[in-house]
């Protein structure tokens, strides 16, 4: 699966955030479940789901879900993201395993290919009209 593995920096869609950010509702911390008397549980981890809609096409990011492990993540993905025949194959990836390019350096990271139009066939105009070229 070498060239298909979703690794950085191609994948740019998601941002699971482990650290809850305050929203102004209250100043309580994450261990706020005291009101219900239940001990804080280990939350199921976040998984990113990629679905191949039919043979010959790439897996495409569909969304995310929660699951205790990869086995269940796959099953949950099947139930959540392919209820209407959307897929013939599913990948699940722990959200925390995805690395991504730095959004702050968009300019420099993706600048190089700009202006190198000699990488494209349209740059070569003299051969226009020559058949099979």
């Amino acid at each position: 699966m070498s060239n298909e593995t979703p690794t950085s920096p191609v994948v740019e869609p998601v941002s699971p955030v482990v650290e809850p950010v305050e929203t102004g509702v209250s100043t309580s911390s994450t261990t706020d479940s005291s009101t219900t008397g239940t001990p804080a549980e280990t939350p199921w981890s976040l998984w990113e789901v990629f679905v191949r809609s039919s043979r010959g096409l790439s897996h495409v990011h569909a969304g995310s879900l929660h699951a205790p492990d990869a086995t269940m993540a796959l099953r949950n993905a099947r139930d959540l993201y392919t209820r209407r025949n959307e897929g013939v194959s599913i990948w699940v990836v722990p959200a925390e395993a995805i690395s991504s390019s730095d959004p702050d350096s968009k300019g420099s990271f993706f600048e190089s290919p700009q202006g190198k139009d000699y990488r494209h066939a349209t740059y070569y105009t003299k051969s226009e009209g020559v058949k099979h070229l």
Partner: peptide
Amino acid sequence: MASQKLQSVP
């Protein structure tokens, strides 16, 4: 530039 872990919005 190092690749980043997905993280909180700054």
